[in-house]
Every structure is written in structure tokens, then in C-alpha cells.
Amino acid sequence: MITSAETLPDLSSPYPLRQEQIEAYQRDGHILLRGVCSPEEIAVYGPIIREAAYRYNTQNLPIEQRDTYGKAFLQIMNLWVRDERVRKYVLARRFARIAAELMGVEGVRLYHDQALFKEAGGGPTPWHQDFYYWPLDTEKTITMWMPLVDADETMGTMTFASGSHTQGFLGHFEISDTSEEYFRNFVAEHGFPLTSAGAMKAGDATFHAGATLHSAPGNKSDRVREVMTIIYFADGVRVMEKPDNKNRWLDLETWLPGVKPGELAVSELNPLVYRKE
């Protein structure tokens, strides 16, 4: 395996977006983009991220002994600060530029990364809004979700409630059986179309807004659904004046160290990854 970050593929070249793709994202709150990483690029970065994820994984309980959240996936966060090779992937200008252009902003900062590995037999990811966890005073947030292996619906690729982001913040529901029941009913009552990412090649990616309701089925295959995610927010936003749940306070302390409510969302963990020239 390549071990030097300097010799890894460069991920700064742009991924050209069409205007209709930008409009579709802003209308639906999500989009699937093919080939964000080439087969050659993901063939190098996939094993590196996989190695780092398992090295830093702290979940040792058997699936049957975990709660609903724990059954959904192994979750390993901020690998970019632990491994210089993963850092090159997470801070890639290509990904950040896509995020900025989809949101229609001049620049984006990193919030954090997270590897989400849904094990064989892993449970479904309940319906939820990412917004609930983030103490950011903005709706200009976006998550890139990229499989490191070829994945189809049997492995648990994403399902989105198209247009649900237009409803804004929908309440204090952490990922749980409660959020699953509440938002499943909410989606049905409001008639939001369900859009599945379906089969995705390694290196394809979905992007979704922080307010977009989404879920994923369980992994019915005999392989691990290995996914890397990166969360961005628009440069220049501030932290909420009064974070209003325990997870927002925890996120503030963890991902925005030293930043106080009402201050600009900038710390050593939130580098400016892209700004339009």
C-alpha cells in the first residue's frame, strides 16, 4: 500500500457541475453524482480510509448487544486529524468545490468527517435530520456520502425525502426508534417523494442538505458497506446564540473547540477547504 501522502492521487481538479444539477439539488435537497472519484483514485484511497477506520474504531460490542443507533453502522470520526493520508482525501478541493457550488456559496469550511461502515447484518439507519446535531446558525450545510466499495440497495444506500429540506428544522429527535417513527409518519403525511440512491459504484457520491430527511435500509448482504462522509458549512457562518439540545452543545465542544455561542464558526478543526477565486 502507498503510505506517503505526497504520492497519493491529487484530488484538486474540478468536477464540472451542470446548472440543472445545481438546481435539482436546491429543489430536492440532495443529489447523486457519478464518478466524483475515478476508479483509479478510489482504488488508492479506499484501502487507506478502510485501514484507518478499523484502526481507530472503538465499537467492540456484537451487533445484537447494541442499540438501534449502534446497529446502524460503525462510526469513526475526524480521521483527517489522525492520518495524513486520509487528510489529503478529506481536504480535497474537488469535493469542497462541489459542496460550495451546490449550496451557492463562495466558500466552505470543514465541519468533520466520519467513516460509516454498515456491517453485514447491520440494522437500518432511522429517519433523521442531521440539523439536530449541529450548533450552526445556518441552513447552508451539506454532507458528501461516498461508498468506498460498489454498493446497492441490499447493502443500505441512502433514501431521501425529496423537498423535505424546505421545512427547516423539524424538532429535537436524535437518531433512534423515535425519530424513525416520527419522521416516517411526517414524510407520509406531507407526501414527500422518496428517492433512493440505488446502486452506487465506489467513487460515486450523494450530497444532501443538513435539513433533508434521510434514512438507509439495513445491510442484507454478506459484505461491509464502507462509506466515507465529509460535512461542510458555508464560510462566514456563526454558532447559534443558544444551542438548544445536549448534542448541539457536545458538537460545539468537539468540532468547534474554543468557539463560543454567537462567534464565527472557525477553529483549527474547521479549515477553509474551498473559496471561489
Rank of each mutant, 00 (worst) to 15 (best):
residue 4 S to G: 06
residue 6 E to S: 14
residue 8 L to H: 03
residue 13 S to E: 11
residue 13 S to M: 10
residue 20 E to P: 02
residue 20 E to K: 11
residue 30 H to V: 03
residue 32 L to C: 05
residue 36 V to K: 15
residue 41 E to Q: 13
residue 43 A to I: 08
residue 43 A to V: 02
residue 43 A to Y: 03
residue 47 P to D: 00
residue 47 P to F: 00
residue 49 I to W: 00
residue 49 I to N: 06
residue 53 A to G: 03
residue 54 Y to L: 14
residue 54 Y to P: 05
residue 54 Y to Q: 05
residue 54 Y to W: 13
residue 54 Y to F: 05
residue 57 N to T: 00
residue 62 P to K: 00
residue 62 P to R: 00
residue 66 R to A: 05
residue 67 D to R: 02
residue 67 D to S: 05
residue 68 T to A: 02
residue 70 G to M: 04
residue 71 K to Q: 06
residue 72 A to E: 06
residue 76 I to T: 04
residue 77 M to Y: 09
residue 78 N to E: 10
residue 80 W to G: 11
residue 82 R to M: 09
residue 82 R to T: 01
residue 87 R to P: 09
residue 87 R to D: 05
residue 88 K to T: 03
residue 88 K to M: 01
residue 88 K to Q: 02
residue 92 A to C: 07
residue 95 F to M: 15
residue 100 A to S: 12
residue 101 E to Q: 02
residue 106 E to S: 14
residue 109 R to P: 11
residue 109 R to T: 06
residue 109 R to Y: 12
residue 110 L to E: 06
residue 110 L to G: 15
residue 113 D to P: 08
residue 118 K to P: 08
residue 121 G to S: 07
residue 124 P to N: 00
residue 125 T to H: 15
residue 128 H to V: 03
residue 129 Q to W: 14
residue 133 Y to I: 09
residue 135 P to Q: 01
residue 141 T to I: 07
residue 142 I to S: 15
residue 145 W to R: 09
residue 151 A to F: 11
residue 151 A to K: 11
residue 152 D to A: 12
residue 153 E to R: 01
residue 156 G to Y: 01
residue 156 G to P: 13
residue 157 T to Y: 00
residue 162 S to F: 04
residue 167 Q to W: 11
residue 170 L to E: 00
residue 175 I to C: 12
residue 175 I to S: 13
residue 177 D to Q: 03
residue 178 T to R: 08
residue 181 E to R: 15
residue 183 F to K: 12
residue 185 N to W: 05
residue 186 F to T: 03
residue 187 V to M: 12
residue 190 H to P: 12
residue 192 F to L: 01
residue 192 F to A: 00
residue 193 P to Y: 01
residue 194 L to Y: 07
residue 195 T to R: 14
residue 196 S to V: 10
residue 200 M to S: 02
residue 201 K to F: 02
residue 207 F to P: 14
residue 210 G to S: 11
residue 212 T to E: 10
residue 219 N to L: 06
residue 220 K to R: 15
residue 227 V to P: 05
residue 231 I to S: 15
residue 231 I to F: 13
residue 232 Y to V: 06
residue 233 F to A: 10
residue 236 G to W: 08
residue 238 R to Y: 04
residue 238 R to A: 02
residue 244 D to Q: 06
residue 245 N to L: 13
residue 245 N to S: 12
residue 245 N to P: 08
residue 245 N to D: 09
residue 249 W to T: 14
residue 250 L to Y: 15
residue 254 T to R: 14
residue 258 G to N: 13
residue 259 V to S: 03
residue 261 P to M: 12
residue 264 L to P: 01
residue 264 L to R: 15
residue 264 L to Y: 14
residue 265 A to T: 02
residue 265 A to S: 04
residue 265 A to E: 02
residue 265 A to V: 02
residue 268 E to R: 15
residue 269 L to M: 07
residue 269 L to N: 08
residue 270 N to E: 04
residue 271 P to H: 00
